[in-house]
């Protein structure tokens, strides 16, 4: 198996936590993994991206070649569009529908959504709302991970274990809330 994932968002939105969970899961499954992150200047509210590659074979490049990604997992709708050149025609766009408004010239949200819907395989999800229902808006990134979970290529139980491992330090309540968020995201994706 081999899955190439583009994780996209805005600095501070928590895409690195998503990456950490997938990373822990991949390690648990004895898979090879490479994950290129954005550190530095862009983390100050700029656009950030992470190239995440998991495979049962050797992975060479830290960057995903254009047109080869299986999945764009975006925690912000406009950011899901920025990396379309990387997505394969059969690939999935799984994106949060709640915009992060820190620029004056943010396009009309309806137009952004229309562009997203032009893609063949799309899951557009109001992760912030679902996260709130699960306990906290701060878990919206984990809702997104749940929504993308059917397309990642690792068993859901292993992702659950990954969530447990990553949030263990923060106590049982936080772990349970994030597990709830993960499951709610997955249910939405499977139902839609």
């Amino acid at each position: 198996m081999k899955t190439d994932i583009i994780l996209a968002g805005v600095g501070g939105q928590g895409i690195l936590s998503i990456a950490a969970v997938i990373g822990a899961a991949a390690l648990e499954n004895n898979l090879e993994l490479k994950q290129a992150e954005t550190h530095g200047m862009s983390q100050r509210g700029g656009d950030v991206v992470s190239h995440m590659r998991i495979s049962d074979q050797t992975i060479y490049s830290d960057l995903i070649p254009k047109g080869k990604a299986d999945l764009i997992l975006a925690v912000e709708p406009m950011e899901s569009l920025r990396y379309l050149p990387y997505l394969s025609t059969e690939g999935y766009v799984v994106t949060n529908s709640t915009p992060f408004l820190n620029i004056d010239n943010y396009p009309e949200l309806e137009n952004v959504k229309a562009e997203i819907q032009k893609h063949k395989n799309v899951v557009l999800i109001d992760a912030d709302k679902i996260a709130k229902e699960a306990g906290s808006v701060r878990a919206s990134n984990i809702v997104m991970l749940g929504a993308a979970s059917p397309f990642i290529g690792v068993d859901f139980e292993v992702l659950e274990k990954g969530v447990e491992a990553i949030f263990k330090k923060k106590g049982a309540d936080i772990v349970n809330m994030n597990l709830k968020a993960l499951r709610a995201g997955r249910e939405f994706a499977l139902a839609n």
């Binding site: 805005v10 700029g46 047109g67 920025r82 379309l84 050149p85 137009n111």
Partner: peptide, 13 residues
């Protein structure tokens, strides 16, 4: 290979 172009409405951030 290359996927879809970046739609024009995408603004830099």
């Amino acid at each position: 290979t290359e996927g879809r172009e970046i739609p024009e409405l995408v603004e830099s951030r």
